[in-house]
């Protein structure tokens, strides 16, 4: 890695001035599990590496009436070790407990996963289906973006020069709702998704009818994909194998995969269908309080 300057600001305003002063020569460092590998491999360059872990707003993990405020520098282990957060957002935990290894989860953040904008980022689909919003601060103040609009291409995100992701806000889970994330990899751990699917459903009080659903896909397009038609097809339907099968088919249609060393187009379409049905079934059981 070429020489860098290291800065560890302790306030958001200090961080934003460092970002503004250095433009695209500054790189935020959260867990570093992407950025250090990229800097070392020459895939990214920076003069200033700015550690975000000492900024209070980025270190907040706060579960309240408005949902979860998940600071962009909070590592995965803190999320799944917090039993109240784990109970409220099991679909997020599916993904946060899946990234890399225990060592990686000790450092890697959901914020870094989102900013890195890999199509395969495992926490991005559940953040999208849960209705997550990116809270962004920069030289022009605050703005908010729905998570599904945050990634703009492989490795590219919607942040403007000098802007920082401060936190991801997840709304409080609705009554009778549930979320699940699954990915397919050829091993048990330590691999990148060939395909991944997150499903969030909200049932009526009887637990028999789906009021609304959101389905999002990983590793089957240049960015994570919100499969709107697939989710909408379930609204107002009774829970049934047929309705779930139709959603699986529509999700598979929303995928725009490529063939690469991990899998083929055909296999990925098939995986999206299967993973959509499986995650819907888990999300429904969770919504009913059955698991």
């Amino acid at each position: 890695m070429r020489a860098i300057d290291y800065q560890a600001p302790t306030s958001l305003s200090e961080a934003v001035s460092i970002m503004a002063a250095n433009g695209d020569r500054a790189r935020p460092l959260a867990g570093g599990t992407d950025v250090l590998v990229q800097l070392r491999g020459g895939r990214r360059e920076a003069d200033v590496v700015m550690d975000t872990k000492k900024i209070p707003e980025l270190n907040t993990l706060n579960l309240g009436d408005n949902g979860l405020q998940l600071g962009a520098a909070v590592p995965c282990y803190r999320i799944y070790q917090d039993s109240a957060v784990a109970a409220a957002y099991p679909g997020l935990i599916d993904a946060a407990g899946m990234i890399g290894s225990i060592q990686i989860q000790g450092r890697a953040t959901v914020g870094g996963n989102l900013c890195n904008a890999a199509p395969s980022g495992d926490t991005i689909p559940p953040v999208i289906t849960l209705g997550g919003e990116a809270h962004i601060n920069g030289p022009n103040g605050w703005r908010t973006l729905p998570a599904e609009n945050f990634c703009t291409g492989p490795g590219r995100n919607a942040l403007e020069n000098g802007e920082l992701l401060v936190a991801i806000q997840l709304p409080a889970p609705a009554a009778n709702s549930g979320t699940a994330y699954l990915r397919f990899i050829p091993r048990n751990e330590m691999d990148i998704a060939v395909a991944g699917v997150s499903s969030t459903v909200q049932l009526d009080a009887s637990g028999q009818t789906i009021q609304s659903a959101r389905i999002a896909l990983a590793s089957v397009g240049p960015t994570p994909i919100l499969a709107t038609a697939a989710g909408d097809s379930l609204a107002g339907k009774a829970v049934s194998d047929e309705a779930i099968a139709e959603a699986g088919r529509l999700a598979s249609e929303a995928a725009t995969p490529i063939t690469d060393m991990r899998g083929t187009i055909r296999q990925r379409h098939h995986l999206v269908d299967v993973l959509t049905r499986r995650t819907l079934n888990i999300a429904i059981r969770r919504a009913r309080g059955e698991e």
Partner: peptide, 17 residues
């Protein structure tokens, strides 16, 4: 590091302050 196992190749030395 601070009670968590980490890959020291993915931590900067300066972060150990």
């Amino acid at each position: 590091m601070d009670g968590r196992i980490v890959c020291s190749c993915l931590v900067l030395g300066v972060e150990a302050q």
